[in-house]
Design a binder for these strands. Structure first.
Length: 576
RNA sequence: GCAUCGAUGGUCUAGUGGUAUGACUUUGGCCUUCCAAGCCAAUAGCCCGGGUUCAAUUCCCGGUCGAUGCACCA
């Protein structure tokens, strides 16, 4: 334990000192659950987000949208967050402990305490003992603690708003606009990267549990009966370690399976979920997560939201925190759309045309309004509507309007059998939701990248961040700070930055010290200008991980470094 | 949130009722032809608020942050 927390301390020490992560607003006293990303941290975060974009936006073609972080109360009533996101709590009047009201009730044999109202719970708790100090709770008020930050919108505090607890709701509320944008066809998807807020009671795990955090979420709208991903072939043979429900119940370790096998054997509910499990595996390993410390754990049936058809968490092993949930991949069925449709009164369906229009025989009951009108006056329309939905008998139909019964004789309406053409049906799509915690991704990327090794009696600290996410991509050094070497090195730096390579010039201190400085922040490559450069216009390129060097001509630097950074080539290949 | 412990330059730390030790880092200079070399110098600190005291970084109370346990973790 001591050793593992040591790793966390070391990483956070480097992160603070070198400008990755700082406690927020230290000047006035920082608050738990809020962090600042320093210069290198912000760059790393941007790179991680861009890598995510390269998959979800570029490869998948799901456009990114951006919605406000402040939301109308109605959104979160519909989403269920106002109701479900709150815990009913009491504070013991004797010892001051905050307690979950429903938990105390359940422990004392009151069933379904979670469904009781605050008042009912308060009554139920009257004689029950505080689990902490054993005194009876008495007339202690039960209050709801909602994990959402509340705010007011506009003057007079009239409109209540909440800071969003997830980015997803913005995509759901834009559903109809998105559907039009994608020209009324399924499947389609939209993604959002942004801040979300949860007023955690006691956030204690550094970057793992924040009150303000960044999420990258995708909402993919699919036909409920067509959950085969059109590009499934891309990851069908991809292998990922799956910790299924069955294996969890048996206490077994995850088993590696191909996505196709997992779907065929019914382990994963459908191709969409499997596809995003594979995609997530690729993204996480691409940002520097150790594949040996990555698993996909299926939610147990009682752990899963009642509406979800299947749910998998990408979990990453942290030396400090154990297995940490980084990504959730869920088939949320039509729960969200149905709920928003009900609360907003707007239809949230897609018209799916049949291949061939269907001829359907439909019976219509058409009222004779010429008679019904004068006879029933104001109620005539309602009666005609009720008639249309009624099951008439031989001699007439009995309909009920506003609680009043009317018998309409058969000669006042006609029953017509009509053949009509039905061209398609309205379908409420299902939602596949991969949801990523960006800050957690960054923490585990740092933890898994961090290494200490001994080089000639000195500890060498190195962040083995993949080049794609490293905040500085190339360091440029003059071997000596004179004889024109510095001038050449500065020119090279300028040239590289013009080619959109994140390059940093450094001439301070001995060359070895400069390599170490860059190692500590994960810079994958270093270019050194030496005395041979003056002779033949070549420089050395040094690889962070192997510390090996290769000589290359200056004019080839932009091309070679771009290839090295993208992974298109390796230092070894250049040498040959 | 409760309980226990802690908080000293950028980092790690020594120590004290009379303003603070050392190392590393950083900056400048000398030196130095590829992996934290050496020498000289400089910069920089007692978490915040209140109390006790002639005097508080030190003692007391409260807060904040952090560690650990409990509770909590949609």
């Amino acid at each position: 334990m001591a050793e593992t927390s040591d790793i966390y301390e070391k990483i956070m020490e480097v992160a603070r000192r070198r400008g990755f992560v700082w406690p927020s607003s230290e000047l006035y006293g920082s608050i738990a659950g809020f962090i600042d990303y320093g210069p290198l941290g912000a760059m790393l975060k941007r790179n991680v987000e861009n890598l995510w974009r390269s998959f979800y936006v570029f490869q998948e073609g799901y456009y990114e949208i951006e919605c406000p972080t402040v939301g109308n109360e109605a959104i979160f009533v519909a989403s269920g967050h106002v109701k479900e996101f709150a815990d009913k709590m009491v504070q013991c009047p004797h010892c001051g402990e905050y307690l979950r009201a429903d938990h105390i009730a359940e422990e004392n044999g009151i069933e379904n305490a979670g469904t009781l109202s605050a008042e009912a719970l308060q009554t139920a708790l009257y004689e029950l003992p505080c689990p902490s100090c054993k005194e009876p709770l008495g007339e202690t008020a039960v209050f709801a603690f909602n994990l959402m930050f509340e705010t007011t919108i506009g003057p007079g505090s009239q409109r209540k708003g909440y800071l969003r607890p997830e980015t997803a709701q913005g995509i759901f509320t834009d559903f109809s606009r998105l559907l039009r944008f994608y020209r009324d066809k399924l499947p389609f998807g939209a993604v959002q990267i942004g801040k979300s807020y949860r007023n955690e009671i006691s956030p204690r795990q550094g970057m793992i549990r924040l009150r303000e955090f960044s999420q990258a979420e995708a909402e993919i709208f699919v036909h409920p009966e067509q959950k085969d991903h059109p590009a499934f072939h891309r990851y069908a043979d991809y292998t990922a370690p799956l910790l299924t429900i069955a294996r969890q119940l048996d206490g077994q370790k995850p088993a590696a399976m191909t996505m196709r096998a997992a779907v065929d054997e019914g382990v994963i509910a459908n191709e969409y979920v499997a596809y995003y499990i594979a995609l997530t595996h690729r993204i996480l390993t691409a940002i520097g997560v150790d594949p040996a410390k990555l698993r996909f754990r299926q939610h147990l049936t009682d752990e899963r939201a009642h509406y979800a058809a299947d749910c998998w968490d990408a979990e990453v092993y942290s030396g400090r925190f154990g297995w940490v949930e980084i990504v959730g991949i869920a088939d949320r069925t039509n729960y969200d759309l149905r709920s928003h449709a009900e609360h907003s009164g707007t239809s949230m369906t897609v018209f799916i045309p049949y291949d061939e229009p269907k001829q359907v025989v439909k019976r219509r009951i058409v009222a004779d309004m010429g008679v019904l009108g004068p006879r029933y006056r104001g109620k005539a329309k309602a009666i005609a509507d009720a008639l249309a939905a009624s099951e008439p008998g031989e001699d007439g139909a009995l309909v009920t309007v506003d609680g009043e019964e009317f018998f309409i004789p058969a000669d006042l309406y006609q029953v017509r059998e009509e053949e009509i053409e039905v061209r398609g049906e309205e379908v409420m799509p299902h939602v596949i939701e991969p949801s990523y915690g960006i800050d957690r991704m960054i923490y585990v990327a740092l933890e898994h990248s961090y290494a200490e090794e001994e080089v000639e009696g000195e500890i060498r600290r190195v962040l083995r961040l993949p080049a794609a996410v490293a905040p500085i991509q190339v360091a440029v050094f003059p071997l000596m700070n004179r004889d024109g070497l510095d001038r050449i090195a500065r020119t090279i730096t300028e040239r590289l930055t013009q080619c959109r390579i994140l390059a940093q010039y450094d001439d301070s201190g001995a060359i070895g010290r400069r390599y170490r400085r860059q190692d500590e922040v994960g810079t994958p490559f270093a270019v050194t200008v030496d005395y041979d450069t003056l002779e033949d216009n070549t420089v050395t390129v040094r690889d962070r991980d192997s510390m090996e060097q290769v000589r290359v001509p200056i004019e080839r630097l932009p091309e070679l470094l771009s290839a090295l950074i993208s992974g298109a080539t390796t230092l070894r290949e250049i040498r040959v």
